[in-house]
């Protein structure tokens, strides 16, 4: 399988990365190079093989449902590029 320019632009939008025409062109070649490389996986017979979900077999850990942390609003927003009174500020999203 290979990708065309329109697919590259669609994927870039899905990934929320702005790309110029020139970048999309360059990426198309690179992505097709990588997709060509991974294509060989198709020749492996995987009939009856379970996909790996956990590399170390283990039961999911459970912990008590109690509050162990909190009241750190200042810390939470400390690294925000824009914040106001412990809210993250973003451009308007509702008309």
């Amino acid at each position: 399988m290979s990708v065309d320019l329109a697919t590259v632009k669609r994927v870039a939008h899905l990934a929320r990365i702005a790309v110029s025409e020139e970048e999309a062109q360059r990426m198309m070649g690179e992505l097709n190079g990588i997709l060509g490389f991974v294509e060989q996986l198709g020749e492996v017979d995987v009939s009856g093989v379970e996909p790996m979900t956990s590399v170390m077999p283990m039961a999911m850990k459970e912990r008590d449902d109690v509050v162990t942390d909190g009241s750190k609003a200042d810390d939470v927003v400390a690294n925000a590029p824009v914040s106001d009174r412990n809210f993250f500020l973003v451009p308007k999203v509702v008309e």
């Binding site: 399988m1 990708v3 697919t7 590259v8 994927v11 870039a12 899905l14 990934a15 990365i17 990426m27 992505l31 990588i34 997709l35 991974v38 996986l41 198709g42 492996v44 995987v46 093989v49 379970e50 996909p51 790996m52 979900t53 590399v55």
Partner: peptide
């Protein structure tokens, strides 16, 4: 970009699931 593509609708089984089986 590669990750977004292989996880996108229609390609998940061919790429991601196949790779996890190979794993």
């Amino acid at each position: 970009m590669i990750g977004t593509y292989v996880l996108s609708a229609g390609y998940y089984d061919a790429y991601y699931l196949q790779a996890q089986k190979v794993r």
